[in-house]
Each structure stands twice: as C-alpha cells, then as structure tokens.
C-alpha cells in the first residue's frame, strides 16, 4: 500500500487527529451520537473515511451514516458536497440535521464523477463520493492526495465497490433491527445498528458503537 506522504511523516489516523492547539483545523464537527466511533470525535480533514454496509446480508444504514457524517459540519457553516448519489432523499437529509444550503448535490456526474470530486475537494470542507463501479488505485490515490493537500474530508459511500486504497477510517454498519413496524400496525420508528470503526492496516483497534441509525426523528442517536 503506497502512501504518498513525505518520508518521516506519520500518516496514521491517530497521528492525524491527535488533539492540537487548534482542533478545528484538524476535525470537522460531528453529530454527538457519531463522535464515539471516530478517533478524536470529529471528521478528520484530509483523510478518507469509507462507509459500507456489513457483508453478511449486505443491507442498510450505510447511506444514512455517510450523509450523517456531514450533517453537523453543514449545520455549523462548513461546505460539503455529495457526488453521484442521484437518489439521495432530501427529506431524510433534513431530518438527519443537514443544512440543505450547505450541502451541494451533484447527482449525475456520469463517468466524470472523479473529476467532479477533484474540483470539489478544492473548495469544500468535505466531499462524499459514491463510486458507480470499481475504482482504479491510481486515480483513487490521486484524489485522496488532493483531498489531503486541500484539507478536505473525503467520505466514500461504498455501495457498489470498495475503495481500492485502504481508507484512514473504515466504518462498517452491521445488520439493523427495525423498531415500530409490526404485522400491519405502527410505522418505522428507528433502526438499531452496531457500527464497527477500524483504522488503516489495523493501526487502531476496532471500536464498536451501538446506535439508532436513524432514530425516530430521522437523526442518528445514541441508544
């Protein structure tokens, strides 16, 4: 796994998000419920955070989690963008706590999604990408390097294929249990999931977080 960082610079996540004199420069704010699953309690600028649904059953929660990672940043005035998620539920985004005016959507970038993302990391604080198919390692590495250089967080919603380069942080949403619906009565009121966060090359021990994703209000919540 090639790291395009100058020799002598430690690029592991724990080094990247170590509290510094000015943490806002390093971390974008997260919804309180999401803090425990990320080292330092914030979305690390300049790092790749990949979100996927657990392999068994392979369903549910990754989209909600990926967008929720941006919610607090947009609400506190940071600029975020989402590339290649044509079916993003705008109402759900608002319920998650996303400030819709600070989340720019590029629903149909087509084959040029990576080019679009490269432009966006130039000016946005965080960019969510959802690759439509397999991603070649070279372009992925270049995009990640650009995001690192511009201090933009790159959130990968790995719906169709994984990110080829090991992300700094991998969030895996386990199988969910829905509450609220029975056999013809009630309505969906929330999904209980376990999210496993792991660092690059096992740099940090996996952390397991129990979570409502979403809760009855639509936002993620601690149990």
């Amino acid at each position: 796994m090639a790291l395009s960082a100058p020799a002598g610079i430690d690029v592991t996540l724990s080094a990247r998000v170590r509290p510094t004199s000015d943490r806002r420069d390093q971390l974008l704010p997260l919804l309180p419920a999401l803090g425990p699953m990320v080292p330092g309690g914030g979305l690390p600028r300049g790092a790749v955070v990949a979100v996927r649904a657990g392999s068994e059953g392979g369903a549910g929660g990754a989209t909600t989690l990926a967008f929720s990672l941006l919610a607090e940043a947009t609400a506190t005035g940071s600029w975020c963008a989402a590339v290649g998620v044509p079916d993003a539920g705008v109402l759900a985004l608002a319920e998650m706590g996303v400030d819709l005016d600070h989340l720019v959507l590029v629903p149909h970038p087509g084959a040029r999604w990576m080019e679009a993302a490269a432009y966006l990391v130039e000016g946005m604080d965080a960019v969510l990408v959802c690759p439509p198919g397999p991603v070649r390692p070279g372009p992925a590495r270049r995009l990640a390097a650009r995001a690192r250089e511009r201090r933009a967080a790159l959130v990968v919603l790995a719906r169709h294929s994984p990110w080829p380069e090991g992300p700094e942080l991998q969030l895996t949403v386990g199988r969910g249990r829905w509450m609220g619906a029975g056999r013809g009565h009630g309505h969906l009121q929330g999904r209980r999931v376990e999210v496993v966060s792991s660092g690059r090359r096992g740099a940090s021990r996996p952390v397991r977080t129990e979570l409502w994703l979403p809760s009855g209000s639509g936002a993620p919540a601690a149990p």
Binding site: L100, D101, V106, P109, R112, A116, Y119, L120, G123
Partner: peptide, 25 residues
Amino acid sequence: AEARAERALGHLEQLLPPDGVAVGR
C-alpha cells in the same frame, strides 16, 4: 469559505450541464 466553495463550483459548472449542481429544498 463561501467564496472558495463558489470558485470550486464555478469550475464544476463548466464540466457539467447547468442543472448538474444543485441544492435540496
């Protein structure tokens, strides 16, 4: 920060059709 975002989006708008960059309401 807004100016930086707008500059990036200005480049992007040349790459995509006019309604290719949007916000939700």
